[in-house]
């Protein structure tokens, strides 16, 4: 008997548990950040550590090969180009160390993908199929950012979530969306 052939009820429980864990991890992040909000690097790393625990338990499919990297980089380009076209390159750049900031940003983005397009996607896929997995992970992705940035980010993050889900389907692993996500976030340093 394969995992894919297991009763759906188990994937339902797994999906719901992962959804609840994600909501709770966001609550912890918001609580730890306090007034610092999304600017809090410490809260971001706590959030990443919590997600990493669940990812470790679920052990989603991880693949790093040429195809995955190419798909991930192409995804990052698709995410960055509209921002460049609409808003351009920032005249001012953040202060502080790019290296320190980029390590923290990459950790948060990569663990989000391992959780959403890895563990949660796999559970939803087994429960209701690929389409529900793509939409479910995208909705979770958009929703998790609302407490941090506000409702105005919902449409954009929903669209981004769909693209990251499509990359997951195309590559068969969470690593392609992780490359795209990390790439787009790191480019934010230079974007308006």
């Amino acid at each position: 008997m394969t995992i894919a052939a297991l009763p759906r009820s188990r994937s339902v429980a797994e999906s719901l548990a992962l959804g609840a864990a994600l909501a709770a991890a966001v609550a912890v992040r918001v609580a730890v950040a306090g007034p610092g909000g999304p600017s809090s690097i410490g809260a971001g790393l706590v959030f990443a550590a919590i997600l990493a625990l669940y990812v470790g338990a679920c052990r989603p499919v991880t693949r790093v090969d040429r195809r995955t990297v190419v798909l991930g980089l192409a995804g990052a380009a698709v995410l960055v180009v509209p921002a460049l076209l609409v808003r351009g390159v920032a005249a001012q750049h953040p202060g502080g160390s790019y290296l320190r900031w980029s390590v923290a940003v990459a950790m948060v983005a990569a663990t989000e993908e391992a959780f959403l397009r890895g563990a949660l996607f796999a559970a939803l896929d087994r429960w209701r199929g690929t389409d529900v997995a793509v939409v479910g992970a995208a909705v979770a992705f958009a929703a998790l950012h609302v407490p941090l940035y506000g409702w105005h980010v919902l449409p954009l993050d929903l669209a981004v979530g769909l693209l990251l889900g499509a990359l997951r389907v195309a590559s068969g692993s969470w690593t392609a969306p992780a490359i795209a996500h990390v790439g787009a976030d790191l480019a934010g340093w230079w974007l308006v």
Binding site: G37, P38, S39, S40, I41, A43, G44, L79, A83, Q92, H93, P94, G95, G96, S97, W101, A104, V105, V108, A109, E112, H145, Y149, V153, L156, D157, V160, H181, A184, D185, A187, G188, W189, L191, V192
Partner: peptide, 12 residues
């Protein structure tokens, strides 16, 4: 802002 996601950039 923010463009997509990620923790806040440090202020100048």
């Amino acid at each position: 802002a923010p463009i997509y996601d990620g923790i806040g950039s440090p202020d100048q």
